Computed example of a mutant assay.
Amino acid sequence: MATKNGVPYRLNLVSPSMYGIKCPYSMRATKATVHETDNNASANNEVVYMIGNGNQTSFHVGIDEKEAVQGIPFNRNSWHAGDGGNGYGNRNTISFEICKNYDPNKGTTKISGSQLTAYNKAKANAVKVIAQVMIEQGINGIVDNVKTHQDWSGKLCPQKMLREGLWIPMRDQIIAEWCRLKSGNKPSVLKPNPKPLKDGKVGDTVKVYNTLYLTSTGGGASAKKRGKQGKIKRIVRNSKKYLVEDWGWAHPNDIQLVKRASSGSTSKPSNSKTKTVTIDKLNVYTSQSLSSPIVKTGSGYRILKKGTKVKVTATANNGQLVHGSKNWSEVDSWGWVPSVYLR
């Protein structure tokens, strides 16, 4: 069987006699659009149903945990985006349906067990296939070129990913895979880290053993900093909990301890203390310096308004001097602010 970036890939194209209904316009795609099927059918069943009925709704590729199946030629449009007959999504983007994302017996996206395993594998296959198709179709691997159904018409789709905060990591993985394919690099295979980091602290010097990630939830993997040493700038509760410099986020298995931070430089209060922001706008930084990056959020940057209540989750006494004080406070486990701006 043919493959696309290692994923089994089959063609089951709609009959040309159905072009007038399913894909009436020629197209040179400029972006990719990602959907979820909201059911538990296989990619093959989705495509067979789509090309065999008389409804206009159509999509290019279905992807599940076993394979990808193409139903519409890439040089024809598909009716998937809900933005009208001349809508950009419908007329200029390749549509991908990710399967196995919904439990019809419970009427919910809250899946578990073997279905969750299948869904996660379908997503992993989708990352590989979408990135490869983008390369083949000349679509540049940038954020603006990897879209959701919601971007075009407001529909909550891909529903599971949008509801559970999984879309941004998914998008970033597609872009990272596109970059890997474009550069010709092969995936790195390493033995398990023999000395994973235990109980890391802000200020610890660590060596990057494996991969760093663009987000703390695992999006945008990169091995560019492998072997480099840097300091932990921030710790959060997600799986990739350690921010190393401004390079990226690491799981404990991705880094090794080189040197502990100076004792007493950073401490955790026995009980998180609630403080109030005293200036109009207070940036939250990734480390104890005004030149550090501001903490990014899903909608921009973490900037606190005057009067905002925060919990101090750690303190440091060796940060950049601000208004005569080197004391900094970690707020809500997100990042650092000069303590002089809290009361």
Rank of each mutant, 00 (worst) to 15 (best):
K147V: 12
Q150F: 13
N210W: 07
G248P: 06
D254P: 14
Q173K: 15
I235G: 01
I235H: 00
P158T: 03
W247P: 04
P252Y: 06
D144E: 11
N185A: 15
L243S: 00
H251L: 04
N238Y: 12
I232L: 03
T205F: 02
K228N: 08
T211L: 02
K195Q: 01
L197W: 04
I232C: 00
K182E: 11
M161P: 05
W249A: 06
R171H: 02
L190R: 06
P196V: 08
L243P: 05
P196A: 12
K240C: 10
S263H: 14
K195P: 07
K160P: 08
N145K: 01
S153V: 09
Q229N: 07
P158V: 00
D246E: 13
I139V: 02
S183G: 14
G141T: 00
K241H: 13
V202K: 04
W178N: 09
G264N: 04
G227V: 15
G219T: 05
W247F: 13
V236D: 07
W247V: 15
K233C: 07
V258P: 14
K198E: 14
P169V: 03
L197R: 04
M170E: 04
L243D: 06
P196E: 14
Q256D: 07
V208D: 01
K198I: 12
G219H: 07
S183W: 09
P187D: 04
L243W: 08
P187E: 05
